[in-house]
Nucleic acid binder design. Sequence first.
DNA 1: AATTTGTTTATAGTAACTATAAATTCAAAA
DNA 2: TTTTGAATTTATAGTTACTATAAACAAATT
Lengths: 139, 139
Amino acid sequence: MDRNYYIDSLKKSNFKITPQRLTVIDYVRSHSPGHFTAEEIFNSIKSEEPTITLATVYNILKALQSSGTVKTFETSGSTWFETNTDFHGNFVCSNCGKIYDIGIDEEGILSNVEGSGYSVQEANLILKGICKECLLDRD
Amino acid sequence: MDRNYYIDSLKKSNFKITPQRLTVIDYVRSHSPGHFTAEEIFNSIKSEEPTITLATVYNILKALQSSGTVKTFETSGSTWFETNTDFHGNFVCSNCGKIYDIGIDEEGILSNVEGSGYSVQEANLILKGICKECLLDRD
DNA sequence: AATTTGTTTATAGTAACTATAAATTCAAAA
DNA sequence: TTTTGAATTTATAGTTACTATAAACAAATT
């Protein structure tokens, strides 16, 4: 997604554009699709944005999330942020820790749930196991 | 599930049977199927088990999990424990906070993921939205 | 350029665990 | 049934991941 998609989404939700927000946007864009913790982003951008604090990174991620350009999920004791806002599974490798996006058919799941009378705002499928690479690396 | 299912599962995994463990087992059994945090269980049983600490409750839940009688998932900043070990979705109501089990077809999802070469150990589908009851309560 | 309101920063605080080590207890074997 | 050794519990301290607060600052509308 191009930079203006993030900027315009923030503006549409009445958020202001700040240099700190642009730095975070540039970070997630250049690592997209990916999975980030607030701390990871903070550590990566603090050389470029030396006065930024972790609290600001959390605030920015909340703004991006509420403007619809990033999604979150919780696993392994942390909140993870990602730019892939399409429905998909997140596979966490118990061996190497990497997180992979896995395409999943949304229809089958949601029709089931909404058919039972629930109104779904958000869905997260979190999978744990051993990833392809780690399976191959085994003796 | 009857008490012996939990006890035998612990024994099979080489865990010892302690009064504290039996108290937690009785708690989750009498609230099953349900969704609990360690703190909730701790608060509910401390009158019955006055010397127990929160650390012990965490330890017991870890033992139950590793012996296969409880599952966990993370959402809303906490780890939740549940006795429903069959594959299902957990629907969290953004309005009332209640968590509901939702039947989901496991096959469709897992065939997809394992077909891509991943070995799945655990799967959690977490849904957020407004539950039936809260939708009806709206003006 | 002035004003308003949102944002950032620094800092302190909290919630949800996790680690550690001594005391205790389970349960297998003598 | 006592002994023994390992697991468990307990008390306590520590850590990690966030959240709250208030003052300083900056964006963007007029």
